[in-house]
Amino acid sequence: MKFSIVIYAAPYSSEAAHSALRFARSVIDQGHELYRLFFFGDGVHNASQLAVVAQDENNLQQQWNDLIEKHGIDSVICVSSALRRGVLNQTEANRHDLGTASAYTSSEVAGLGQLVDAAIHSDRLVNFG
């Protein structure tokens, strides 16, 4: 089955982002297709590559990045949510004359059309917030 997952929650603030990660892993483990991850609102912080966590703690952003890269998952961070929260890829950082890209390159910065597309083309869309 084709799944898409929408993540509204920032990492560490609530359990939801972590739940979404565990769910995404299980979707893949069971051989389903993960059509798209869509990070929206505070959820875009999950794509930040500038996080540093204590050694005995999970780095959720890095775990998302590992999962996305390992399985070649189509992952999107909502552009309007991301820009105002300082989660930028190199293209956006250059465009706005800000030095550093803060987003992992494994996720694409794109608009809500990608969410609508996921709703249309997935058999199941699951929200975590």
Binding site: F40, G111, V116, A119, I120
Partner: peptide
């Protein structure tokens, strides 16, 4: 696509997120 908007406005941004998603859905003629 059905949107159930359950949050009060201003205190948090859920109402805005919900609206943005609905407008995008309408733009793509859903």
């Amino acid at each position: 696509i059905t949107f159930i908007s359950r949050a009060a406005p201003y205190g948090q941004n859920k109402a805005n997120l919900c609206l943005d998603m609905a407008l995008a859905s309408a733009v793509f003629e859903q």
